[in-house]
């Protein structure tokens, strides 16, 4: 065996080892987080956790029914305005990619994507909380929606641009108007991907805490009113985790576990929905 071939083999081995170590570094934190959350959380999870309200300070037991409902309401509000606005924005960006307006919107979306979530919280506090002098579910939902918006806009744009030009031509050649072609052919073709983007964005904002501290605040009681403060899993977990009570720590773990599970379920739902839609779409 010549020395160059030996050297090549050594370099190859070293490269493989480097890749393996990188994979471990990348996966280890995720594995540890999941392991910890599951280990601590699963034992604390019981029927009470889902159905009972928080007990007064010092009393053991109780659950997070209000926070679970609160989180669902908050992400529903967020999706309610961020999805239509974001998708329509994305359509505009892909239809008029070079207009000055599109350039500005695209840049704004990218900047917004980089704005720390707590800043968004303060902003919404300024426009929706201060004027009425009350924390509200609505303001919390809006804050989460603002965080979703840039993700939805950019995913929609990117995926619409991937739709083959031939589809548009086919629709136009049959006498479809431009908008008709967009809504009946181009958008449906990109839908599986857009849907995934939306669910990923939802999963991301469902785990936000900071922007809710100034907006939705928290609520020890059951509330579904949009104009009242509302509890959320993340804020509840935060509150319980920094408390001095053993039982609250236990519940904070359970809350964290539930959050992780919700995100897992959302991701799986996204996969399944995409697979179903793609059965029609596969080229």
């Amino acid at each position: 065996m010549t020395s160059t071939s030996l050297r090549r083999r050594l370099v190859s081995r070293a490269a493989e080892a480097f890749c393996a170590v990188s994979v471990v570094i990348a996966l280890l934190p995720l594995a540890l987080i999941l392991f910890y959350v599951v280990k601590e959380g699963i034992g604390a999870l019981n029927a009470d956790f889902f159905t009972k309200m928080p007990k007064p300070v010092g009393e053991a037991g109780g659950g997070m029914a209000n926070a679970i409902a609160g989180t669902l309401i908050l992400i529903a509000i967020a999706a309610g305005f961020a999805v239509p606005a974001g998708v329509i924005c994305g359509i505009h960006l892909s239809e008029y990619p070079k207009s000055a307006f599109s350039t500005i919107v695209r840049f704004a979306a990218d900047v917004l994507n980089g704005v720390p979530s707590i800043v968004v919280g303060i902003f919404v506090y300024g426009i929706l909380v201060l004027p009425v002098k009350r924390f509200s579910a609505l303001s919390g939902g809006v804050a989460l929606g603002i965080l979703m918006l840039p993700i939805v806009i950019r995913t929609t744009e990117e995926l619409l641009r991937l739709v083959p030009a031939g589809l548009r031509e086919g629709a136009l050649a049959l006498g479809a108007t431009r908008s008709r072609a967009i809504f009946t052919v181009i958008l449906p073709a990109a839908l599986p991907g857009i849907l995934t983007g939306i669910l990923v964005a939802l999963a991301r904002v469902a785990g936000e805490t900071a922007p809710l501290l100034f907006t939705a605040f928290n609520n020890r009681y059951w509330s579904t009113s949009l104009t009242q403060p509302i509890a959320s899993l993340t804020v509840q977990v935060f509150t319980y985790a920094i408390s001095p009570y053993e039982d609250w720590h236990r519940q904070a773990w359970a809350g964290a576990f539930l959050l992780v599970m919700m995100i897992l379920v959302l991701s799986i739902a996204a996969r399944l929905a995409v697979r179903r839609l793609e059965r029609m779409n596969r080229p």
Partner: peptide, 20 residues
């Protein structure tokens, strides 16, 4: 739009819509 309804077109690359 009316013109294109009178003048149909078939393209080089078949372009069926993602529908049935």
């Amino acid at each position: 739009v009316a013109l294109r309804r009178r003048v149909g077109m078939v393209f080089q690359k078949s372009n069926p819509f993602p529908k049935s």
